[in-house]
Design a protein around this nucleic acid. Structure first.
Lengths: 230, 230
DNA sequence: GTAATAGTGTCTCTTAGACAATATGCT
DNA sequence: AGCATATTGTCTAAGAGACACTATTAC
């Protein structure tokens, strides 16, 4: 059962990230133009080899890639699924562990202009307008399915907002990802039920209208799950 | 970014299976006693290296391992999560893609007696009574969490039953895994709603009571999702 | 008949969903 | 005042959950 020559049978192992953020124009995914073969010049998800000499585990490898490619220290990171086959990389049998990363809207602008080889691309339906290297279109599709599924019944979308946000802004995020309007009253009932945000004392968003209370995520809580759906 | 010596940095890659079945005594997981170091003599989840020369992809590798270790051709197989770290295998940085496999109850008896090194172990809470090799306790725990979560809102438990079953038997499976009683009337309403089973014409389960209609899964359907929860 | 389980029906209390009313700042 | 958005309240139709009733077989 154990191979005689271990190294010969070892697949290539890497980590690929679906980095998502929400701009005024909708959901955006961070893509990198490949500098090297294979697929030189094509757009790809940010990713990299697992560094067995420096990464203690998979999550650390994903965090390192995220840091190297996006500059953001600790975005929300969640393992998505693993893609492995003989044909997905022309260099040989390869395994890629896919991760989903969510970035707050206010981090997006800075990252986009950094390099001509790194750019945010608008998500349309279940993909992007440009072709992607490897099987990255599949990984992206899986990431979008995961995000949209979890938006229905978890507090995940808070990670697409800055640390302080109003309930109106939070509702807008849900609506943008789900692609449908939500009832304000029902929405607030759900948020109050699961109790994962708290008002920031005397912090208000002001405009030419009634000021809105600013909320933040309650510290020490993970992702909250709704009883039913949002 | 690309390592100079690829093989030196390649992690070890394997597939591990959480093979579950439901007996009269509750949920059972298939374990194998390790014949070789490391962890020689310890119980472990059935697993094996990815064979880059014969497995076309990860699902095929999992199916092969399942076939080799359980003898069952096509159980329900679902990718669970991937576990990778420097320390989980003393031989070096390793990646294991975990899968959940569900077996019909009528397949269980035959497999158990095959070998003294292969045995069904009762699941108690979130694990088994014996210690497991590697980080297999974590993988098992993740598999159980996945199963229990999906039982709440999907038709997954049908895979724990033989091809033909009564609605009473199906309800019993849900109740056993969830650990709580379900209302018969409400249960049947849900099953009718999602419409994933059909009666087998004139097939009846007989006993010292009113005979029960035997149902089967509608062909060509994947896992069905309930609107809310079961 | 009795026992046992299958299968269907009814009733009530909760609540999701739609809609409306009020509150509060800015210009 | 008028506008825009925040925040809270009300009403109703739908449905979940609890419970009960009828059906059909073996013995």
């Amino acid at each position: 059962m154990e191979p005689t020559d271990e190294n010969a049978l070892k697949p290539i192992a890497s980590v690929d990230l679906v980095v998502l953020a929400l701009s005024e124009h909708g959901l955006q995914v961070l893509l990198i133009r490949r500098q090297a073969d294979p697929f030189r010049g094509a757009w790809a998800l940010p990713g990299g080899w697992i560094h067995t000499d420096e990464d203690p585990d998979l999550d650390a490898a994903a965090a390192r890639v995220s840091r190297e490619k996006t500059g953001v220290e600790t975005p929300y990171l969640e393992q998505l699924a693993t893609f492995g086959s003989a044909g997905r990389d022309p260099r040989g049998w390869s395994v890629s562990v896919g991760y989903v990363a969510l970035l707050p809207a206010d981090e997006v602008a800075g990252r986009a202009a950094e390099s001509t080889d790194t750019a945010w691309h608008a998500v349309t339906g279940d993909g992007v307008a440009v072709p992607l290297a490897f099987d990255h279109a599949s990984i992206l599709r899986a990431g979008l399915i995961r995000l949209r599924a979890k938006v229905e019944y978890t507090s995940l979308p808070v990670h697409l907002l800055p640390a302080g946000f109003t309930l109106g802004e939070l509702q807008a995020v849900y609506e943008r990802i789900l692609g449908r309007r939500l009832d304000k009253s029902a929405f607030r009932k759900r948020i109050a039920e699961v109790d994962f945000v708290e008002p920031v004392p005397s912090a208000m968003r002001r405009g030419s209208n009634r000021p809105a209370q600013i909320y933040r995520v309650k510290p020490g809580l993970g992702t909250a799950f709704f009883d039913r759906t949002i």
